[in-house]
Simulated assay, not measured.
Amino acid sequence: MSKQLTTILATTLALIEQFQDTLSTSTHTEQPSPKDAKALPLLSASSATLKAQVTKLSLLSITSPFTHSAVSGVLRACNDTVLPSLVTAALLVTPAEYTKAFHSEVLLLVRTTLNEFNTLVQQVKSISEKKDLEKKDDPKKESELARPDKDAVTLATGRVWDACDTVLEVASKGVVGFVMHRVEQWRDLVRDAVQEIEDWDPEEDDDFFDDLMGEDKDDGEEDDDDSDDEEETAALKEQKKNTLRFLKPIVQVYPSIATNRLKNAGDAPLSSAAGVTRLEALMLNLQSIPEQVDEAAGALYEANVAKSAKFLKKTQKNAAQAVESMAAPWDAADAAGCDKQVTDKFSIWSSAWFKVMDEVSKPIDAASTA
């Protein structure tokens, strides 16, 4: 019986390696449509089944007596159905039908799950080898598994559970839920940057720099320097105020889009290639803003007002493109040529948003060309 288990363990480890290579190199072309493939339900079901099988495998491995046939049965089920189903589901989540970001996320999570399962199988293999040596020395002997071995299996099992739970969560929320989560993360990053700018005091930075670089100066030089410092500090304070006014409507883009275009959208964004394209454009633009805000803040702290303003203009461009990409409701007949005059809560909000941005961007426009 130990020979059979050895063969199955080797098969499991080889399959995991093969599936990892498949997920890494697959071009994901000419796949079935999500309506026919039911990729996400399959992803959920296979993840839940793997978690259940892992639970059995863990208990069988750490509980005496170590039964080769029972362990083999669990591994055989994983090899024959569970792992192939999990990998198949991941391959069916194609970029063209689920967005590039969601496709990448699913591949990453499934590969992580396979890695964690591989670690557990290696632990089971080690236990099996120890038990075989023990039986070889004394066929009637069946000792309790050592605590370090039990702990190693328990830890590995917990990591597989966590990986499966993460896959289940992503699959259950779907593409739109995934996008909403990302939008919330990017919104929080922008809010943190804005809070940092609000807390920044140009006068304190100026005093710190003077203390750090201070040299003995005569009274005339001190008067001139004080005058220059006061002018620069005043200019930075003004730019700080303009920056915060400018960023306030930028921050509002995130919750407005999440509430009016993503929440309760269901699978509508995935009903056409144009809908997927809109989601791609939305994520690309909203993801770019936090880094640009950080760059704008960093330039402001360095008293480089023009550089800061140029980064702010980039955030405005991305925010405007994000708003424009969500102009039409998802149920528009043809998103590629849909009626942009559709009036709903978001279209009314977006019209007001563009007017506000035109106003608050005037000082930023002037600073960026100075």
Rank of each mutant, 00 (worst) to 15 (best):
K135Q: 14
P95W: 01
D149I: 09
D201W: 03
I127F: 02
S143Y: 00
H103F: 09
S126H: 10
L109Q: 11
Y98P: 03
E116K: 14
L83K: 05
D151S: 12
Y98C: 07
L133P: 07
G177I: 03
N79S: 03
A77D: 08
V179A: 04
K135R: 15
R191Q: 11
D149Q: 15
V176N: 04
E134F: 09
F102M: 04
L108A: 13
C164K: 05
L114P: 01
E203K: 10
E129I: 13
E134Y: 02
E142Y: 13
V183F: 12
R191E: 13
E184A: 15
V93N: 05
V110Y: 00
V124C: 04
T157R: 10
V176P: 03
L92P: 04
W161G: 13
V194E: 05
V194K: 07
K141M: 14
A152S: 14
R191K: 13
K100D: 11
F178E: 01
V160E: 00
P202E: 04
K131W: 09
Q195M: 11
E169T: 11
S104A: 12
L168H: 00
T157I: 06
A89V: 05
S143I: 10
L107P: 02
A96W: 04
T88K: 04
R182H: 13
S128D: 11
K150A: 05
K131L: 05
D80R: 04
N118R: 10
E184Y: 10
A96G: 14
A156K: 06
W186R: 08
T166A: 11
A89T: 03
P202A: 01
L91H: 02
V175I: 05
L168Q: 12
P139N: 08
P139Y: 10
K141H: 11
Y98W: 09
T157C: 09
A146V: 08
A156W: 02
N118K: 08
Q195N: 15
R147S: 15
D201I: 07
E134H: 07
T157S: 12
K140G: 14
T113E: 02
H181V: 10
